[in-house]
Every structure is written in C-alpha cells, then in structure tokens.
Deep mutational scan, measured.
Amino acid sequence: DAPDEFRDPLMDTLMTDPVRLPSGTIMDRSIILRHLLNSPTDPFNRQTLTESMLEPVPELKEQIQAWMR
C-alpha cells in the first residue's frame, strides 16, 4: 500500500498530481477539480477555493513517481 502522505485525503487513492490548497491540505488535482465543479470551496474548511489557488507540489509528485517504479 502507498504511504499515507501519497494518498488523497478525500478519496484515499494514490495521488498522481498533488496540489496544495491554501489551507495547507495536499490533494490530487483531479479530485479537487471534480469537487470544485460542484462547490467552489475547500472541502475541509468550506473557504472559497478556485483552481487558480491550487499550488503544485512537484517534490511530492517526484517522490510518488519514484515509489511507483
């Protein structure tokens, strides 16, 4: 099983494109984008959230890719 820090906190699946929300939570980009289609909010604190506020986490993405090899 993947380490917890590699798993999306909402869907508990392996992240492939991790992004940091303004709240500091790291999620998979595809999952948070799907959530934003229904509700333009951070799913953990209900603060306003837009796609432009998502910050890529390239170092975590590299760690996940290395773990998958």
Rank of each mutant, 00 (worst) to 15 (best):
D42Y: 03
S52A: 14
H35K: 04
R20C: 07
D17A: 15
Q63V: 10
S52V: 10
I26W: 03
D42P: 02
E51P: 14
P40F: 09
S39Q: 09
L54T: 01
L21D: 01
Q47E: 14
T16C: 14
L54Q: 01
L14V: 13
D4A: 15
P58Y: 09
Q65N: 12
M68K: 09
T41Y: 13
D42S: 03
D42N: 06
L36H: 01
A66R: 13
P56V: 07
A2G: 08
R29M: 08
P3W: 05
Q65W: 14
V19K: 00
A2H: 08
Q63E: 10
S30A: 14
W67A: 03
V57K: 03
M11P: 01
L14F: 08
I26R: 04
P9A: 12
T48G: 11
I31Y: 07
E51W: 13
I32M: 01
T41D: 07
D1H: 14
Q47T: 15
P3Y: 05
T48C: 14
L49M: 08
D42T: 04
E59H: 12
S39P: 01
P3H: 05
G24L: 04
A66V: 11
L10I: 11
L60P: 00
R29D: 01
V57N: 05
L49V: 07
I32G: 00
P43D: 02
I64R: 00
L49T: 05
Q63A: 15
M68T: 09
R34Q: 14
P22A: 04
L21G: 00
Q47I: 09
P40R: 12
W67V: 03
T50C: 09
E55L: 10
V19I: 06
H35R: 05
Q65R: 12
K61G: 06
Q63R: 15
T50I: 10
R34N: 13
G24W: 03
L37N: 10
T41K: 08
F44C: 07
P3R: 06
P56F: 08
F6P: 09
K61D: 04
M68W: 11
L10D: 02
M27F: 06
D4H: 15
N38H: 14
H35C: 10
R69G: 11
S39I: 07
P40M: 10
E59I: 10
S30H: 14
N45S: 14
P40L: 11
R69P: 06
L33A: 08
R46D: 14
D17C: 09
Q65G: 08
L37Y: 11
Q47C: 10
A66F: 10
T41V: 09
L21P: 01
M68F: 11
L60T: 01
F6Y: 12
A66L: 13
M27W: 04
A2Y: 15
T13H: 07
A2R: 05
L14D: 02
P56L: 08
H35A: 06
M27V: 08
N38P: 00
F44P: 02
D28G: 01
Q47A: 12
K61I: 07
E59G: 11
L37G: 10
I31G: 04
H35D: 01
P18A: 01
W67K: 03
I26H: 03
M27R: 01
S30N: 11
S30Q: 14
I32P: 00
Q63Y: 08
V57A: 07
Q47S: 15
T16A: 10
L14W: 05
P22V: 04
F44E: 02
D12Y: 14
P43V: 02
S23R: 02
I64W: 01
L21Y: 01
T16Y: 11
N45E: 07
F44H: 03
K61L: 13
L60D: 00
M53P: 02
R34F: 11
D42M: 01
